Amino acid sequence: MASQGTKRSYEQMETDGERQNATEIRASVGKMIGGIGRFYIQMCTELKLSDYEGRLIQNSLTIERMVLSAFDERRNKYLEEHPSAGKDPKKTGGPIYRRVNGKWMRELILYDKEEIRRIWRQANNGDDATAGLTHMMIWHSNLNDATYQRTRALVRTGMDPRMCSLMQGSTLPRRSGAAGAAVKGVGTMVMELVRMIKRGINDRNFWRGENGRKTRIAYERMCNILKGKFQTAAQKAMMDQVRESRNPGNAEFEDLTFLARSALILRGSVAHKSCLPACVYGPAVASGYDFEREGYSLVGIDPFRLLQNSQVYSLIRPNENPAHKSQLVWMACHSAAFEDLRVLSFIKGTKVLPRGKLSTRGVQIASNENMETMESSTLELRSRYWAIRTRSGGNTNQQRASAGQISIQPTFSVQRNLPFDRTTIMAAFNGNTEGRTSDMRTEIIRMMESARPEDVSFQGRGVFELSDEKAASPIVPSFDMSNEGSYFFGDNAEEYDN
């Protein structure tokens, strides 16, 4: 783990906690998980779902989305002020799938948001429990990260689609708070800032007046979040320049895209947490497990152990491969979309394939898809080993990566060399080191050039047997250095459309 220093740990961010010791953190995270579980059980009762239907990941996603929508204050306010045809701002819903006479049927349900809020609060001892809501947002974000390569979004903001390893959390809503900021990748933060800068260039009043003052505060806050992700002084200094700019424009845009590229080699610290679907927490609570009393951590053995003992089902389209669908969801559960496939294969105990080789589309089923041909199958979400999630980018030494994705962002704290394609990355730096950030740029390029592919990161860190909950005997895996390590390699994943 990167030293926490003055930073709060993510469990504290996750639970809005002030400084807590490890036991208190485990208890408050457990409380959050228990609340999600209780809410899910109650919703299944309301909807009269069978046990099997309640364990269907598509039903879980609909129920999670309903509660997130019920608590989305800004959108609710907007919907009330701008009524649109056929949208009731006070209601929320989605597809629920039921097994009827041996076939899967889709039923569109509609609930009062007020009623959903009441059920959620009741499951969370009367609190709004925003930490639990954020947790579900991060699960949705991790699922998107594993399912889609955001080529269009990258290109629109002047970045290269091969930089997708920097895009963790790119679909997280803005209201996801400190826990959300911690899991956002460098590219995601750059993209958010670039969008602001572009608006400022096109709209003279963007930075002016009372609204402009708020915009400015948001801009500086985002700059500080991004600065905190960088691990070298030169990158941090460049972020200070971007933040202090009187009138952010093209120079800042250039600096930010430069920094994003540099992060492929001088990786930023991005938190990883295993956020599971509500249909995993519900049955665990129903079986009598007391998360608050037992304590829970999002970055240790607990999620692995929970998945070892969970039964989750998914709808499967006619030509999809259930094992591939399982891999997709497994990666999402562990926030591992940008991790090295060699490491993932070792931990999972079966070969993890790149996205383009998977015969599976996303987990969600569109409303126009034919239910007649839908089957369902068990998702295999178990693992051979477990490993500690990392909050750091690993040290800054790398190795060759593949054509589709030119770097990785480690999820697990496991000893290995970190793949990246130096030639491709360095070719993108057209040696432009003039301007006010020239000395920093020169320094950053120097550090990137001296990074050695064969150097090892996370020295001495290994994986653990599932029986080793105290992480007492690390097993340090050895990897084939020459092997392909990137998930979005030469990829044809669908595009994420909101």
Rank of each mutant, 00 (worst) to 15 (best):
M1S: 13
K7S: 00
R8N: 02
E11R: 02
E14R: 02
T15K: 02
G17T: 09
R19L: 09
N21R: 07
V29D: 09
G34Q: 05
I41W: 14
M43G: 01
L47R: 02
Q58N: 15
Q58E: 09
Q58C: 01
V67P: 05
A70N: 03
F71T: 05
R75Y: 07
E81D: 14
D88E: 12
K90N: 14
G94L: 01
P95Y: 01
P95W: 05
I96D: 04
I109T: 12
L110H: 12
D112M: 08
W120P: 01
G126M: 12
A129V: 15
T147L: 06
A178H: 02
R199Q: 15
R204C: 01
N211I: 11
G212C: 07
E220M: 12
G228A: 13
K229R: 09
M239G: 04
S245Q: 12
L259W: 09
A260E: 08
A260D: 01
A263G: 15
I265W: 03
R267L: 14
G268K: 02
V270A: 09
A271P: 01
G282V: 01
A284L: 15
A284Q: 14
V285I: 13
G288D: 06
F291W: 05
E294L: 08
Y296K: 12
L298C: 09
R305L: 10
Q308F: 12
S314P: 06
I316P: 00
K325E: 11
Q327A: 05
Q327Y: 02
A336R: 00
T350M: 14
T350I: 08
A366W: 05
E369Y: 05
E375I: 06
S377L: 08
R384C: 11
A401N: 04
T411V: 15
S413L: 11
L418H: 11
M426C: 12
N430V: 11
T433I: 10
E434D: 15
S438V: 01
S450Y: 09
R452D: 04
D455R: 09
F458N: 01
G460H: 07
S467M: 14
D468V: 10
D468E: 13
E469R: 04
S473L: 01
V476K: 01
S482D: 10
S486W: 09
D491W: 06
E494C: 02
E495S: 09
